[in-house]
Design a protein around this nucleic acid. Sequence first.
DNA 1: CCAAACTCGGACAAGTTCTATCCGAGATGC
DNA 2: GCATCTCGGATAGAACTTGTCCGAGTTTGG
Lengths: 160, 160
Amino acid sequence: MKLSGGVEWALHCCVVLTAAADPIPAARLATLHDVSPSYLAKQLQALSRAGLVHSVQGKTGGYVLTRAPAEISVLDVVQAVDGANPAFTCTEIRQRGPLGTPPEQCTGPCPIARVMGAADAAWRASLAAVTIADLAASVTTDSGPEALPAVGAWLARDPD
Amino acid sequence: MKLSGGVEWALHCCVVLTAAADPIPAARLATLHDVSPSYLAKQLQALSRAGLVHSVQGKTGGYVLTRAPAEISVLDVVQAVDGANPAFTCTEIRQRGPLGTPPEQCTGPCPIARVMGAADAAWRASLAAVTIADLAASVTTDSGPEALPAVGAWLARDPD
DNA sequence: CCAAACTCGGACAAGTTCTATCCGAGATGC
DNA sequence: GCATCTCGGATAGAACTTGTCCGAGTTTGG
């Protein structure tokens, strides 16, 4: 049970993109977070494929959020980067072996799959209830009202 | 986000051990489920290390549940096999880079870690609410009252 | 209008974790 | 006392995640 490490980077990027109106290049986001530029680019590509950010090419290109921060849930980001596959996959063990249940009796999922599926649904519901806007608001509460605008100004400034 | 495949095997083993009073060898459980005996042994060792099953050596040895099925939660089994580490680990990105937050301001976990932690807690709570006894009852509902006793009788019988 | 520079996008290796297996230590029953 | 059966940990192989690179396309400036 492990989540891809890129999820953390992608979430941070989405939060800071809240404070920027113009497109921000991946390299600048990597400098801000002090992480590998090449690998962060990979995560942003995943966000782009999922339609959460819009990519702009050319000299003044970069990434911009496609929707309002309140319309992007944490679950959207997690699923874009880590994939939407459920953590548990039932291999139908009940049908195997000498006492295997006949397939015609296996109409619905087995009890174990039901329990794991319910837990997965609870996990997803918890993530779907929080949006990027909520995260930005929490950052403001934690670090003060000037924190996010300062990041936005730094992103817009020319590279040193 | 992926769960170890051995979790499914371990859960099935715990359910069928409900129907057996005497120790059952790992090889017999592997035959019943038609899975690799060597790898299933590894999962049972994990259950043994966690104290969920008691291992008996010698000619009539095998594995027995240590507690009543109603006292073993699905979460116990999952954590024994897959580990108790949370899926998300915060690397404190907020402290890195040119605009990093000073460590003295980082008293509590960052907003992203809080959200992921809450989702993890919801997932665990959902798994902790179901016991092995509940799973056995569901099997009885699904496959009839004679299903589990039949498995118990097959396990006790001498190998063919 | 042209050229240069900067951007994203997908294809390419390295490291690490999970999967699968084997043989030795220990205990039981005959 | 001995043979046999059991678990337990240490050992190779496969799959995935992580990390990196260079080419295609677009925009700015002269």
